[in-house]
Amino acid sequence: MDEEYDVIVLGTGLTECILSGIMSVNGKKVLHMDRNPYYGGESSSITPLEELYKRFQLLEGPPESMGRGRDWNVDLIPKFLMANGQLVKMLLYTEVTRYLDFKVVEGSFVYKGGKIYKVPSTETEALASNLMGMFEKRRFRKFLVFVANFDENDPKTFEGVDPQTTSMRDVYRKFDLGQDVIDFTGHALALYRTDDYLDQPCLETVNRIKLYSESLARYGKSPYLYPLYGLGELPQGFARLSAIYGGTYMLNKPVDDIIMENGKVVGVKSEGEVARCKQLICDPSYIPDRVRKAGQVIRIICILSHPIKNTNDANSCQIIIPQNQVNRKSDIYVCMISYAHNVAAQGKYIAIASTTVETTDPEKEVEPALELLEPIDQKFVAISDLYEPIDDGCESQVFCSCSYDATTHFETTCNDIKDIYKRMAGTAFDFENMKRKQNDVFGEAEQ
C-alpha cells in the first residue's frame, strides 16, 4: 500500500465507483478503499435476508415463511433508472452494461384523492384515464405537443414562451391547466419533490418532461429500469471497470487518518501504512468535519406477500404521492420490486416508501404510502441524515459526494458526479471521457 497514487477513493457507493471508473479509464492511477467488507456503502443491496434483520437490530431473524435468505437482495436506497437518463448513458458509454441485466418497471402510478391511478404512457391511455376530465385532456394534450416540439435552440418552437424568464406557473396558465393536472405534471412527469420549481424559469421543467417522455418511448410500460439482483450491482459494475483499467481495490480496510500538508491532501493512513495521493474522493462518512447536515430522509422497507392493490398485479412499480394531495411540502414515493428481479424469495415483494422528513414524527409522514401497502409482513425503518460538503474541495483537493436524496431516480446523483468531475479535472464533464479506450493495455477482449 505504500505507494504513490493520482487519486484515492474512500467508500464504494455508486458515486465513488463511477468516479473511480472514469478516473481509471482516463489513465489515472487509482486506489479504492472501503472500511466495509462489502461494496456499495449507503447504496448497497443487503443479502442474505438475515443480514438485513441484523442491521435493523431485529434479533429474532426472519421467519421460515420468508423463504431462503440467499434469495434476497434488499436495497437500502430505493431508486430506478430513467431509461433515457444520465446513468444509463454512463453505463452505455463505459460498457458496464455487459455486467448487468435490466428489466423495465411495469408501471408508474400517481395518488389522487386517496386512490392510485396509472400515469398514462400512451395517448390512448391518456384519453381513457380517469385522472382528468374530457376538456382537461384536450388542454393537457396541447401542452404535451408543445413540450414535444420544444427545442431550446429554435425560438420558432417557443410559442411566445421565453425559456429563460417565463416561469412554469405562467406556462401552466397559458395552457389553462387545472391544479390536479399541474400536480401530476410537476411531480409524476417532471419528478420534482416540491413546488419550488413553479416560480423558476420553465426551461428545466420542460426538459425534465421531455426526458420522461423519451424514456417512456424506449420501452413503453414506464420510463424506469431496474437491474436484476438489486442496485448493489451498479457500484460493483463500475468497480470492475476501474479494476480492468488498473485500479487497486481494498475492502474491509480501516481508514485511520487523512493526511494533510499546508491545507492540501497528501495521503491516507491505514493500519500503520500511508498511501500518498494528489486528490481524494470520499463519501460524507469519511470526513464528518468537512460536511454539513442538509436534512433527513425516511425510508421504510416493507416486505409483502402480495402485489400492491390497484396496480394490475404489477411485479414492479412506482407510486408518487404528490405533496398537495397530503398537505406536505415534499412528495412521498413508493418503489416496489419483487422475486421477478431476483431480489426476493418466490411470491414475495419489496416495497420501499420514502420521503424528505418535515416533522418530528417521520413515520407518521409516510402513513399515506403504508396504507396502500397493507397487509405488511415486516417493516424496517431507516431515518438517514443527508450531508453535503461545506466547500468545493478545490483548495484541499478533498472531494466529497452528497448523500443520496429522496428522489426515486439517479439524475441528482449523476449531477453530483459531473460536478465533482468538473472540480477535479478543471474541465466540464463530457460523456466521451467515459469511453473505454480501444486496444489499450487494460481493455477487455470482446465477449
Rank of each mutant, 00 (worst) to 15 (best):
P63Q: 14
H187D: 07
N262Y: 00
Y349S: 04
E365Y: 01
I301L: 13
S44N: 06
P284H: 00
S65Y: 06
L191N: 15
I376S: 01
I320N: 02
L203I: 04
L228P: 08
D154G: 05
E432F: 09
K89H: 13
L81R: 03
G160V: 04
N312K: 03
D289N: 09
R436C: 05
Q164P: 12
G85E: 06
V119P: 01
R208G: 05
Q296L: 11
K253N: 01
H409R: 05
V381G: 06
I321S: 00
C414H: 11
Y117V: 03
Q323V: 03
S222C: 10
V9F: 10
D170E: 00
Y38C: 10
D6C: 13
D283K: 15
H187L: 06
M82K: 00
K437T: 13
R139G: 12
L241Y: 15
T355P: 00
K89L: 15
D331A: 03
S401N: 03
T15R: 09
Y339H: 10
Y349H: 09
F431K: 13
V206T: 06
G107E: 15
E446W: 15
G113M: 12
P368R: 02
L372T: 01
V266W: 13
L131P: 07
T15Q: 01
Y38K: 05
P322I: 12
Q346S: 11
C400Y: 04
N252G: 03
K348N: 11
A126G: 05
G11T: 01
V30P: 04
N207H: 03
F380T: 05
E444Y: 01
A382C: 02
S285V: 06
R292L: 09
F135M: 15
A353V: 11
L373E: 03
D331Y: 02
R276Y: 14
T124P: 04
M260L: 14
D6Y: 00
C282G: 04
E3D: 06
T356I: 07
P48R: 03
P37Y: 11
P389S: 08
E4L: 04
I18V: 09
K103I: 09
K29N: 08
V110D: 04
I298D: 13
E50Q: 15
R141C: 06
K269Q: 06
E123V: 13
V326T: 12
P163I: 11
E395R: 13
L370Q: 11
K156M: 07
E136D: 11
R240M: 00
T94I: 02
E152G: 11
D2Q: 07
F109T: 05
I18S: 08
I258L: 10
R141H: 06
V74D: 08
R423C: 11
F431Y: 02
A340T: 13
I22A: 06
N315C: 04
Y229N: 08
E51V: 11
P63A: 01
P235Y: 15
